[in-house]
Design a protein around this nucleic acid. Structure first.
Lengths: 112, 112
DNA sequence: ATAAATTGCTACTATATTAGAAGCATTACA
DNA sequence: TGTAATGCTTCTAATATAGTAGCAATTTAT
């Protein structure tokens, strides 16, 4: 009973520890789960199968990966296609807002 | 011995589980730690003391909050000011790239 | 000056999440 | 009809986070 359902907080509901239920906190709660952003990033390039995603995310545990995929599907950010998982329209919208982090990271990471 | 140093991966170094060491993965590894994004978000409005941040982040555990603050300081995203913690120039740059998520979250969250 | 608050933590235990290895059922291919 | 991928599920160990208590140092009030 270790990695059971941890539903994504709804609007107005307290995020684990965040009583506000502010939208941004709901989103942060989701995105800060392991591999969540990596999955979105990986799928932005092309559709990927479970095992491809696993490799892309550095051998992520299948258990965690699967949990994350279920969550992302349950909130409509990704879905299954014939050739693996794919971003939904909403998922791509989110990715578009995440994308600027890529350029920034390339400048920043070498400095640390 | 539970919440010891978990250094932020350097460029080229494998992120826990991510052999690539791609900049974006290094950043994701940092940002996906509990409260990391919430802290940046909270400090973007104004400087906040330890206890103010704790309240802002929904009564985050002092132990975790402190760990996170150390990490964010060690990579130069935040620093101490006379009236609490503050974003560095670099930290604000990162925040600026995070900010679009706020608007998006306000549209998205009500739909889930 | 002294007492009472407040602040910024540290320490410790309990719980939750993630890692990692193994393996199984199903589909795809040869 | 094998043989090999694929998409998981299950289990245990390791790690991270939550939560409570409390203490030393600084600030505020008397």
């Amino acid at each position: 009973m270790s990695e059971e359902d941890r539903p994504v907080a709804k609007h107005g509901e307290p995020v684990p520890g965040s009583p506000s239920g502010q939208p941004i906190m709901v989103l942060f709660d989701l995105l800060s789960r392991r591999w969540a952003m990596g999955i979105l990033w990986g799928l932005s390039e092309k559709n990927r199968t479970f095992r491809e995603l696993q490799a892309y995310c550095g051998s992520a545990s299948p258990s965690v990966l699967n949990t994350r995929l279920k969550e992302l599907r349950s909130v409509g950010l990704i879905e299954k296609a014939s050739d693996g998982y794919t971003l939904t329209k909403t998922g791509r919208e989110l990715y578009n807002r995440l994308e600027p982090l890529g350029d920034w990271a390339m400048e920043w990471v070498p400095t640390i």
